[in-house]
Design a protein around this nucleic acid. Structure first.
Length: 587
RNA sequence: GCACCCAUAGCUCAGCUGGAUAGAGUGCUGCCCUCCGAAGGCAGAGGUCAUAGGUUCGAAUCCUAUUGGGUGCGCCA
C-alpha cells in the first residue's frame, strides 16, 4: 500500500507533466502548517522559475486541475505558490482501513531490496562489554530488523575481536597464573582438557591487569606479542586456549545481548578467517599490491585527490603478525565467497572511520569488493553529564552487564512508585520490569541521531514522562486495556469514519510510517522511526484525551473509534518490534 | 600541523532533496480526573538557528572566512 503523500504526489506529478513540466515538481509532503492543510506541494516555485513563469499563476491553474481528484477535498494556493492540500474525510477513513488490513500496517516495502551483511556488536573476547557497546548492539540490531522488514535479505554477524594482541595478553596472563597447564607445554601431545581453565570472572580479572602491565612492562608486552604470533602461527595449545576463551566469553555476551533483545545470525570472529589470511597475503604479494616496507607488508591506499595523509594498510606487521586490517579484509573475502552480498554495513564507533576507509580502499584496489558497497555506519559516544565519555564515579568504565542491572533496578523502582500494579504478582512484575528497562535503554539510544554523542542519564531514560521508551509502553498498555474493556463490553470495531480533528491528526500521523521507515533504511538512521512512533503515541494520547471511545454511546461512532484504536495498536506494536521493544499487556 | 564532524529555547535534542509564523522533550506558569489507566491531556511564556560575508524570489539548510568544541592521523584494536 502507498501512503497518502505518495498518492497525492502521483496526482500532482501528473498535472505538472500535463503542463509540460518535469514530474519531480509534484513531490508532496506533510504540511508544515497543519492548521491550513494536511499536505503541501512546493514544486510550483521551482518549476515556474525554471520556465520563467509566474509561480502563483501556475499554482492556481494546477489547483484547478487537481480539484476533481477523489482524494482531495480542497486545494489552496498560498504564499509565493504553495499548493495546500486538504484530504477528504472518506479518503482518510479508507487509508486507515488499509493500514488496519495491511500485513505491515502501512510500513511499506523497499523498491530495491538487497542482500546485506550487517557487521555489528564487535565485542572483544578478552574483555567484558562496557557502556559504549550498547550503541553498536542496539543500532545494528534495529537496522537488521527494519531492513529485513522492508524486504532486504539481511545477515547479522557479531564479528568477535578474538585475534589480536588482547588474546596474547590473556594467554600470557593465564600462563603466569597456571604455568603447568598442558597448553604451554610444547612437548605435550596428549589430549587437551575439554573444560576451560578459566571462567568469565577470571577473564575479566586477568585482562585489565595484563593490559595495564603491558603498558609499563616492555618485556611483558613483548611476551604477549610473541604469544599472538605463536597463536596465529597455529600453535595447537594456544589455539585450544583461544577456543576456551571464546566459548567462555560468548556465553557471557549472550546474556548481556539477551537483556537488550539483540541477536545475531552469525557468531563469527576474526579467528574464523585465519585460514584465508595466508592465501590473501600471497595473492596480494603476487599481484604486486602488497609491498615490503620496514619489515611489514603494506598496501598503499593513498590517492592523488587526498587532502589528508593516508597511511598504508598494514597487512602483516614486522613481527609477522596480522592485525585487524588483515582480518577485516579476509572477512570480506570470506563473505563475498560464501554469501555474495550486495553490500556490507559496519556498525562501529565513528572513531574507526579512518580504519574503514583504509580497508575499503584496499578491497577496492584489490578487486575484492567495490568500495561503494562497503559502508561504515559510524555512531557517537555515550557521554556522562560532563560531556565526556561515560565513566563510573570511580573513574572506570561501566560494564554493560552492570548498566543492564542498573536499568532493571530503576525500572522496578518506577513501577513501585506508580503503585498501579495492584494484583500483579512478583513473577509478572519482574517480567514487566525487564521489558521497561529494555525499552528505556533501547529507545534512549535509538532516538538520537546516530552520528551524534548523547548523554547517559538513566533517571531520564527510565521516566514515564517525556520522549522515552516507558512513555511508549504506557501508551500501548492503555490501548490494550481499552480494547480489552471494549471486548468485555461486547463492543466491536466497525467501519471507519474520520470526523474529529484529533482523529484526522491521528490518521495523518499513522500515514507517515512508510516514509519514516524508508528514511531510516536509506540513511541507516533508526531515529526517524523513533520520531514516528513517538508522534503516533502522542497523537493517540491526544485523541484518547479528547474523545470518548468505549463509553461513546453512539454505537457507530464507537465502532469507528475502536477500529482506529486497533489500527494504532497494530502499527505501534509493529514499529516497536522493529526497535526491539516489546510492551507488556499491563504494567 | 593536516583532515573530518559539530555549534538551534535555561537544559537535552529534531528539522528529509533550500520554501510560509524554526519544532519536540525537560524545566517554569495556569487549566482538566463524580466519566475509557492523570505514568495522561490542553494552554502559555521562552530562540539575533555561534559570528561575518556570499549565492537565491526565498537559507537553520548551499558556498567562503572567523571563533569555539569533539574526533582521527603507519605496525593496539
Amino acid at each position: 500500500m502507498k501512503d497518502l503523500a505518495a498518492q497525492l504526489a502521483e496526482a500532482c506529478s501528473a498535472v505538472f507533466v500535463g503542463r509540460g513540466f518535469d514530474a519531480k515538481w509534484g513531490a508532496v509532503k506533510k504540511s508544515d502548517r497543519p492548521e491550513l492543510a494536511d499536505f503541501q506541494c512546493n514544486g510550483c516555485m521551482g518549476a515556474a522559475k525554471q520556465a520563467g513563469e509566474n509561480a502563483r499563476e501556475l499554482a492556481a491553474s494546477l489547483a484547478e486541475d487537481l480539484a476533481g481528484n477523489e482524494l482531495i477535498a480542497r486545494v489552496d494556493v498560498a504564499g509565493p505558490g504553495f499548493l495546500n492540500i486538504v484530504v477528504r474525510d472518506d479518503a482518510l477513513a479508507n487509508q486507515l482501513e488499509c493500514i488496519r488490513q495491511d500485513p505491515k500496517h502501512g510500513g511499506g516495502q523497499a523498491a530495491d531490496p538487497e542482500t546485506v551483511i550487517i557487521d555489528f556488536g564487535g565485542p572483544n573476547v578478552a574483555k567484558p562489554m562496557h557502556v559504549g557497546h550498547i550503541r553498536s548492539a542496539v543500532i545494528g540490531d534495529t537496522l537488521v530488523r527494519l531492513m529485513r522488514f522492508l524486504g532486504d535479505r539481511v545477515i547479522g554477524d557479531v564479528h568477535l575481536g578474538d585475534w589480536g594482541l588482547q588474546m596474547g595478553l590473556l594467554i600470557v596472563a593465564v600462563m603466569e597464573e597456571q604455568p603447568s597447564l598442558p597448553y604451554f607445554d610444547a612437548a605435550y601431545d596428549g589430549p587437551l582438557p575439554e573444560q576451560p581453565p578459566v571462567n568469565m570472572d577470571d577473564l575479566s580479572r586477568l585482562y585489565p591487569a595484563a593490559s595495564q602491565r603491558a603498558k609499563d612492562d616492555d618485556a611483558y608486552a613483548q611476551r604477549a606479542r610473541g604469544a599472538v604470533a605463536r597463536m596465529q602461527a597455529g600453535d595447537v595449545g594456544y589455539r585450544a586456549l583461544l577456543k576456551h576463551f571464546i566459548d567462555v566469553s560468548v556465553a557471557a555476551l549472550k546474556t548481556d545481548y539477551a537483556f537488550l533483545d539483540v541477536s545475531f545470525d552469525f557468531w563469527k570472529g576474526e579467528s574464523d578467517v585465519d585460514h584465508l589470511i595466508q592465501p590473501l597475503v600471497s595473492d596480494l604479494q603476487a599481484r604486486g599490491l602488497a609491498r615490503l616496507d620496514d619489515g611489514a607488508w603494506i598496501i598503499d591506499v593513498a590517492r592523488d585527490s587526498d587532502k589528508k595523509d593516508m597511511p598504508p594498510v598494514i597487512l602483516v606487521n614486522s613481527r609477522g603478525a596480522t592485525g585487524y586490517h588483515a582480518t577485516d579484509i579476509a572477512t570480506i573475502v570470506e563473505r563475498q565467497e560464501t554469501l555474495a552480498p550486495d553490500r556490507i554495513l559496519y556498525v562501529v564507533d565513528q572513531r574507526q572511520a579512518f580504519h574503514f576507509e583504509q580497508v575499503f580502499r584496499a578491497c577496492d584496489k584489490a578487486a575484492i569488493f567495490p568500495e561503494a558497497q562497503l559502508e561504515h555506519i559510524g555512531f557517537g559516544t555515550v557521554n556522562g553529564t560532563d560531556g565526556k565519555p561515560f565513566k563510573t564515579r570511580e573513574g572506570g568504565t561501566l560494564r554493560l552487564s552492570d548498566l543492564n542491572a542498573l536499568a532493571l533496578a530503576e525500572a522496578e523502582k518506577k513501577i513501585g512508585e506508580a503503585n498501579l500494579s495492584g494484583d500483579i504478582g512478583p513473577d509478572e512484575r519482574a517480567d514487566i520490569a525487564a521489558l521497561v528497562a529494555r525499552a528505556s535503554l533501547r529507545f534512549a539510544d535509538l532516538k538520537n541521531q546516530r552520528t551524534t554523542n548523547y548523554m547517559f542519564e538513566l533517571e531520564k531514560f527510565s521516566s514515564f514522562e517525556g520522549k522515552t521508551g516507558p512513555y511508549l509502553l504506557y501508551a500501548v498498555v492503555r490501548l490494550k486495556a481499552l480494547l480489552k474493556r471494549a471486548a468485555a463490553a461486547g463492543a466491536v470495531a466497525g467501519s471507519v469514519k474520520i470526523v474529529e480533528p484529533s482523529e484526522r491528526k491521528l490518521v495523518l500521523a499513522l500515514d507517515g510510517f512508510s516514509l519514516a521507515l524508508s528514511l531510516a533504511r536509506e540513511k541507516r538512521m533508526p531515529h526517524y522511526l523513533c520520531e514516528h512512533i513517538y508522534t503516533v503515541a502522542q497523537s493517540f494520547s491526544a485523541f484518547y484525551g479528547a474523545l470518548p471511545i468505549v463509553r461513546e454511546s453512539d454505537t457507530d461512532i464507537r465502532a469507528a473509534r475502536l477500529a482506529l484504536c486497533e489500527a494504532v495498536l497494530l502499527q505501534l506494536e509493529t514499529g516497536l518490534e522493529l526497535l526491539g521493544i516489546t510492551a507488556p499487556d499491563r504494567m
